[in-house]
């Protein structure tokens, strides 16, 4: 790595041969846009009124965080927090007739949350998509498809369920209890085949809540005041 003024440059050079002509040179750099790099002031000025308008809406403090919340497969504190927020919000006033758990997607968490104030802005960055919550009732025979998916993907955010030795263990189910169906609380994106979660096609019943996942995250973060940190892995 070479430091050239304010820009850190990774150089890569190769010699090219042109089939019927003199040799040509190719030189490739990956120019890092560093913290120290100065900004073009005219563009900063152009962006300023947009930033102001956005900030007026977005810089609202929602909660606080005592940790860095990150995304890391198979399981991390931000993945756990997001799945828990959705699960707790959705089941708070519900009497469940079947086991239920939340399954979201790691790829859908678009940012980490830094230690300190958690602004509305941060939650929009974590969940920028206008995805809504869907409940899907799935036959127990399809549970293994979900386990197989989690093994293959390397881990997705889950709540109220654990994975041990490649098996999903539903909460609140005794060994002898016979379970025919379970509910998965998820996003409309995944339910409709996003990220190839094809097991949702096995659903026998669905509830489309029309509730935005982001709105639920905002609501739950406000309730918690200090974001609950659970970094224990749920996928082993």
């Amino acid at each position: 790595m070479i430091k050239s003024s304010r820009i850190q440059i990774l150089y890569f050079s190769i010699i090219c041969l042109c089939a019927c002509s003199p040799k040509l040179a190719v030189n490739v750099e990956q120019i890092k846009i560093t913290k120290e790099q100065l900004a073009d002031s005219s563009l900063t000025a152009f962006i300023a009124p947009f930033k102001q308008e956005m900030d007026a809406q977005m810089r609202l403090k929602i909660a606080e965080s005592e940790h860095d919340f990150i995304v890391k497969r198979p399981s991390s504190n931000l993945m756990n927090w997001m799945a828990d927020a959705v699960f707790i919000n959705q089941t708070r006033n519900v009497r469940l007739s079947h086991p239920a758990f939340c399954l979201l997607n790691t790829g859908g968490i678009r940012s980490s949350i830094g230690k300190g104030d958690v602004l509305l802005n941060d939650l929009f960055k974590v969940m920028p998509f206008d995805n809504t919550i869907v409940w899907a009732k799935i036959p127990i025979t399809s549970l293994e498809k979900i386990s197989a998916y989690l093994i293959k993907s390397g881990g997705e955010p889950i709540s109220n369920v654990k994975m041990k030795n490649g098996q999903l263990l539903l909460s609140g189910v005794g060994e002898k209890a016979s379970v025919n169906y379970f509910w998965v609380i998820t996003s409309n994106y995944l339910f409709n085949g996003g990220d190839n979660m094809n097991f949702f096609q096995d659903a026998v019943e669905t509830i489309e809540t029309k509730t935005l996942i982001r709105d639920v995250l905002i609501q739950e973060a406000k309730l918690q005041e200090i974001l609950l940190n659970d970094s224990k892995s749920r996928i082993e």
Binding site: L17, L24, A25
Partner: peptide
């Protein structure tokens, strides 16, 4: 490819012969 989020800018400097027209172009050895 340069990652994402505008963290990097890729720069490829290439010297080309104006005569190198044809169906075979650059070969890097």
């Amino acid at each position: 490819q340069v990652g994402w989020a505008g963290l990097q800018l890729g720069r490829i400097d290439i010297e080309l012969s104006k005569k190198s027209v044809g169906n075979q172009n650059i070969v890097i050895d």
